[in-house]
Design a protein around this nucleic acid. Structure first.
Lengths: 209, 209
DNA sequence: CTAACGTTTGTCCAATCGGTCAAAATTTGC
DNA sequence: GCAAATTTTGACCGATTGGACAAACGTTAG
């Protein structure tokens, strides 16, 4: 990788953070091609040339954003291990994932946008780091199944379904709120979702006997 | 609404279809702002001014596409009724939805793109037609729960979870294939997904006792 | 055949976009 | 306090974009 982190002044660090925060807002709402440098610059409270002093290309901003994103995005899955009770372990994974959808919806949408467009910039990461991690966790889940702790199914698709159901509340938020309406679409929707998802997955995975 | 369908010649009908097919391809892959009229025109095998003869604005193409999409998109949910066995009824809804993700991934991505950007062009439809339909079906599901045919949960979030898990295989297809790898990411992935989802939802919803 | 109508094309335009550059303003190290 | 380095700005550029337009071309009905 790039040998050492480039030396940065205090101002550079602060302004780069400011830009990345603004870019997250803009990119997640409009996608990469739908966003303009001017929009990001305005959201960051600076002029376009000034922004380009800190990031020389629009793509550099996006790249930096994606790199940071992936690390935090996979953190919940990394925490999944087989030291605790399997059902409890899965339940807290679902809960953590749903909390991320609630607390970091912009990050979720940025990621969704990238995947929707065919993941042109992060394909290697998906086939490498992500696949490795998922395979590793799928092996743990398989162990639980062999031990009769949870019902036998496909661990990969189980992980997909947890991703899909939790991220849905970030990526499709406007639809969820529109369908639930004014009364049920308020702040309580995440608790309702948590209750539902825990029940679905726990009852769906409980070993029979 | 617009009184009568505007009179169209045979050529107009054919060419408009050609353009819509090309636009579906381009829009679903690049999003609205990420797509250019030139791209669509080339994909449709005609010149840009020629395309603009049939659709005067880029937005008109997108609008027509979205209108058609919504009708077919909600068809599976419309079919859900309470004449059959509840679990069978839900199982076949899941299957139909997954088949749509498999057979019409471009339509799914077009829809996902629109929702991700905040659904600026179809918000009224979500709050109107879609909400009405979902509320109606949620009432049916609630009836099943009261009758003890399926376990008690939130019907709205149940529907969301079916949407999320099935559409995931269209919208996040590249990620699914990357994680499953060359051996398991082939054509069989939809059958694996079908098996998994049916098990998850049926076991998760079976009445206890 | 031909006039009316429908279709296609080349050319053009104004707006927007990502990005450059040199000069001005500011901050920093001594 | 001053010189060097850093930061900010305004003006500018070429490429791309959505769309307009009139002229040329094709089709069709009488």
């Amino acid at each position: 990788m790039e040998g050492s982190a480039p030396r940065r002044t205090r101002i550079q660090q602060e302004k780069r953070e400011l830009i990345l925060e603004a870019a997250l807002e803009v990119f997640s709402a409009n996608g990469f091609r739908g966003s303009t440098i001017d929009q990001i610059a305005e959201a960051a409270g600076m002029s376009k040339p000034n922004l380009l002093y800190y990031f020389r290309r629009k793509e550099d901003i996006h790249e930096t954003l994606m790199e940071r994103l992936l690390a935090t995005w996979l953190a919940p899955l990394r925490e999944l291990d087989d030291i605790g009770d399997p059902l409890t372990e899965l339940r807290s994974y679902i809960r953590r994932k749903l909390e991320m959808a609630r607390d970091f919806p912009r990050e979720s949408r940025l990621f969704a946008n990238e995947i929707l467009q065919g993941a042109p910039r992060i394909m290697p990461l998906l086939e490498g780091e992500l696949k490795t991690l998922v395979d590793e966790k799928a092996a743990i889940i398989k162990g639980w199944m062999r031990a009769g702790k949870i019902v036998r199914t496909d661990p990969w698709h189980l992980i997909f379904s947890i991703w899909a159901t939790t991220q849905h509340y970030a990526d499709f938020d406007v639809q969820v709120r529109a369908v639930l309406g004014a009364d049920r679409g308020g702040d309580g929707r995440f608790e309702d979702a948590a209750r539902f998802l825990e029940q679905l997955f726990i009852e769906g995975l409980k070993p029979k006997g």
